[in-house]
Computed example of a mutant assay.
Amino acid sequence: MPDEPLVRRHTERAIAVLTLDSPHNRNALSAALIAELTEALDSADADPEVRAVLLTHTGTTFCAGADLKADGVRGGPKLLVALIERIAALAKPVVARADGHVRAGGLGLLAACDIAVAGEAATFAFTEVRLGLAASVASIPVLARADPRAAARYLLTGETFGTAEAVRIGLVTAWDEALDGILAGLRAASPQGLAASKEISTALLRQRIAGTAAGLQEQSARLFASAEAAEGIRAALERRDPPWAC
């Protein structure tokens, strides 16, 4: 029996709907999920009938970030950089809808999307700092979208916050009740107009990718390889506090 897809696809009135469907690891950014998502984005970009992409999820988690249980987790930063770069380069807008938990690298995925909406059930946290890591790669799109002072607070503390705060600081565009109007607007726009407008709106993100991705990818790999991070990840998997928590 073939493996079930981690990313499900269908098209609904010119919108390519991509659904993260990896509940066993809370839609974590495994190499396999990133590969399937990239393939689906490429397919949508090449389809003349598709006007925009809607990225959504099954279950109670939009994306948990890196798959900490997977072999080769240290390769995750490079894969996430490539995914963020692909979303930014896509000629078609990508809209994210989160109605569940968004954690760590999942915030990078959310922020890379051109528009993001979230529901009442959504919660957000940069948990890396509590594991001996940093939101290195995730910070690339986050700091291109969100208020930098507010982002600094959450990058440094790992606090959990809700949709109202995510909207206030610019990490999320709007509550999910705005989704129908957003999709209607995208369906009414011309393909050429959307591509040109996206090129304008992603200029800062693309500059940040070009200027910071290599260094932040190296930082992330170095942190993942450290003894402190190994202990932090082990503590998280064992559901206990790390030794530095006080």
Rank of each mutant, 00 (worst) to 15 (best):
K69Q: 13
D241I: 03
L29T: 07
P77Y: 02
E85A: 15
G76R: 01
G232H: 08
F126D: 00
R13V: 13
R149L: 15
L110C: 05
F124L: 13
F62D: 05
P243D: 02
C63Y: 01
A189D: 03
A98I: 08
P191S: 13
A174V: 06
R86D: 11
A213Y: 11
Y154D: 06
V142S: 03
L80V: 12
G100A: 03
V94Q: 08
L156G: 11
E4I: 00
I182W: 01
V17A: 02
R8C: 10
A121E: 09
L41Y: 02
D47P: 11
W175D: 14
H57C: 05
G105V: 05
P2T: 12
Q219L: 14
V137G: 08
A144I: 00
R206D: 10
A35H: 13
R9M: 04
R74T: 13
A122M: 06
D3H: 09
A236H: 10
P141M: 06
E128H: 14
L90P: 04
R86I: 02
S22E: 08
T38F: 03
A151L: 06
A135Y: 03
D47M: 07
L18E: 05
A104D: 15
A32S: 15
F126G: 00
D21I: 07
E36P: 11
R222S: 10
G105W: 07
A236S: 06
A152L: 15
P243S: 02
G105M: 08
D67E: 14
S136C: 15
E12G: 04
T157S: 14
A195N: 09
L110T: 03
L186Q: 04
L90Q: 14
N25M: 04
G65E: 04
I34F: 03
A227S: 05
H57P: 08
E128Q: 15
K69C: 09
R13F: 08
A28S: 15
D71L: 14
F224H: 12
A46E: 01
L29G: 02
E218R: 14
L68P: 02
Q207F: 10
L90Y: 04
K92H: 03
L183E: 03
E159P: 00
G232W: 04
F62L: 08
F124Y: 15
R74H: 09
T173M: 09
F124N: 11
A31W: 00
A82I: 04
A144P: 01
E231N: 05
D3M: 13
K69D: 14
G181K: 04
S201H: 09
S226K: 12
D99Q: 11
A221G: 12
E165F: 05
A235T: 12
A32P: 09
T163C: 12
